[in-house]
Nucleic acid binder design. Structure first.
Lengths: 233, 233
DNA sequence: AAGTGGTCTAGACCACCTT
DNA sequence: AGGTGGTCTAGACCACTTG
């Protein structure tokens, strides 16, 4: 076999993608099975499998055992978002990072918070409010609830020095994370703390994490005006 | 070799992840090389490789040839977002979908639009404004620019019947997509078209796509009040 | 220059799903 | 019940990067 003609899995992926682009395989169409594509391209089936795995993960095709591979009829635009530790994010912008703890109390969680955890029975959680600053200006205001049954150690952490954000991500990895993004109008309180105008439009990043089926924390991060979230790659 | 003890790559991934969770391997630490882990677990190196590939994609570890595998020192929370065709999104909510073309004209693109394409020389693009409705109520207001040199066929499409959104995604797949999310205050015009209050906080989804290095389209989708974007599993 | 991850192959068997 | 994708193995070679 000529080595110069050997195809890599990215080559295979690109060629198949090209055939989808030019509608040789149109949305909804079934692709040949891996074996046939492999023979067609003169490569091993596992190479095709690797290519298909990538196309499947990108949301371009759907694969089913016995059902074969089909081009997604309703393509979705899939993107990944990276949310770094806030301190890192600020420092990477070349700004000075500061952090202020505003509040830290055990409280009965309101229904809206319990709902994010999928819980019904009211329980007492650690409620934290904190402000992240970039170059001495308010950057993100976070309103967080931590489940102290899952993370009892948090009670011994000095949250005036290090943000719960940072401590948790370094010490309590999660196995599941739900996020959502939405816009909100700055309330009187929020406007005061973010040093902005009442009624300003602000992006909110809401995050809830679990380890196994145990809730860890849920947080609403209200960003300062003009904040923009970008996708990766 | 006992088959019941055979490990799948997900088993290997989970065990390594567990060791990262319990800080056997702490952030910044170097993991043993694949060969050693494979021998340790009694599986093939490619199985370890598959597991590592997944951990790497999740942003948990970083891998470098010769450099080995290390636990990311600054963990990022990585999430994926799916943006379906608007019609699909509305229908999946069980609502009736409608669509109105508001404007369709060739225009010289303003600098802000050119910047999204990374272009400097002003050129004429197809400017489209359209409204998507759910159950007869405004849902998303889109402001789109299409590059007619890359997609000349768009000129022959009846955009009063089918949204550019839908036609493009079905007929012009892209190879690259940049997205960003931010909040904006409803201007007088936007408020009127979305049938909401002046100054309401609205989530904007901005998207720009290319095929190879050729720009296809860029769109600002202004969502109606209360719109929320969720991440996928 | 050498070490480590990345990929390819060929073959086997498994698991899930559709028919 | 059978077909198709998913995974595992063992071995070989490649490609990137660091010491």
């Amino acid at each position: 076999m000529n080595r110069d003609l050997r195809l890599s899995w990215t080559d295979v992926r690109d060629r198949i993608q090209a055939r989808i682009f030019d509608r040789t395989y149109a949305p909804g169409d079934k692709l040949p099975k891996d074996d046939e594509i492999a023979e067609d391209f003169g490569c091993a089936r596992s190479t095709v499998q690797r290519a298909m795995q990538d196309l499947s993960q990108s949301g371009i095709v759907e694969r089913r055992r016995k059902g074969g591979t089909t081009v997604r009829a309703d393509p979705v635009t899939r993107a990944t978002v990276d949310i770094p530790i806030t301190r890192r994010e600020v420092e990477e912008r070349g700004c000075k990072y500061d952090y202020q703890l505003i509040r830290r109390e055990m409280e009965i969680a309101p229904k809206s918070v319990l709902a994010r955890f999928g819980m019904k029975v009211p329980i007492s959680l650690l409620h934290i409010e904190a402000l992240h600053l970039a170059d001495n200006r308010p950057y993100i205001l976070e309103d967080r609830w931590v489940c102290t049954t899952t993370v009892p150690e948090i009670m011994n952490v000095d949250l005036a020095q290090k943000s719960a954000n940072e401590w948790l991500v370094r010490n309590k990895p999660f196995s599941r994370c739900d996020m959502s993004f939405y816009a909100t109008k700055a309330s009187h309180d929020v406007a005061a703390q973010l040093d902005t105008e009442l009624g300003d439009a602000l992006l909110v990043i809401e995050r809830t994490t679990w380890i196994g089926s145990e809730p860890i924390t849920t947080v609403q991060a209200v960003t300062s005006p003009g904040y923009q979230l970008f996708t990766q790659g």
